[in-house]
Amino acid sequence: MNFALLAEYGPALGQGLLNTIFLSVVTLAIATPIGAAIALIRETRIPWIAIPAAIYVNIFRLLPALLVLFFSFYALPQFGLRLSPMTAAVLGLSIVGAAYMSEDIRGGLAAVDQGQYRAAKALGLSYPHIIRRIIIPQAIPLIIPPYVTRAIIMVKATSLASLVAVGDLTGEAVRATSITYEPFMFLIMAGALYLLLSGALALFQMWAEERVARARRPRTSLTVKAAQV
């Protein structure tokens, strides 16, 4: 390990890490509500909104994310829309991420027993009420594992932003490698930092699952007896 080089390029790697965190947080913050909205829209089965949502999902799910990023940064200026590298990356990654995320969320919603819908409807509850009070609480435990996995994939996908001129963690590691010709040190550093970021999300998943499981755990016999009294 060459500590002199590490000291020289450490600040640039740190800035790259901050850019990666910013890109991850903003992309997830945009993609999550859009993905949830698309999933709910598709679950309504109302053709005039569900079909366009399905078309959106399938177009962006089937296109390579890199192609979308290249289009947003290199092609849009040809149409008069000149985005900064970071804005283009956020736009491209959010569009693609929302398409994937909607499928993860829709899977969770669809996994809730259809009898729950029918029973709630028979009780006269409105669709928003059914979704909010009956379906979503049961779907969340099912959604958490695929959602966090998707979030981890999206964090790693931010490395594509280096190809549209964003100085993210991958970009700065590649830059340092190209200048110093030290092929391992900076890539290993970047890998370790990605592990930390993704690891934090994996820990969040464990915490969230544990919390949901605790909330759904049957009350103890003592509690039940106390309730009966």
């Binding site: 290199y74 590298p85 280096s162 190809l163 001129a165 100085g167 970009g171 830059r175």
Partner: peptide
Amino acid sequence: PTEFPGLPESLIG
């Protein structure tokens, strides 16, 4: 500065 991944991308920029 704007850092592109390659020369073709720089020239498009």
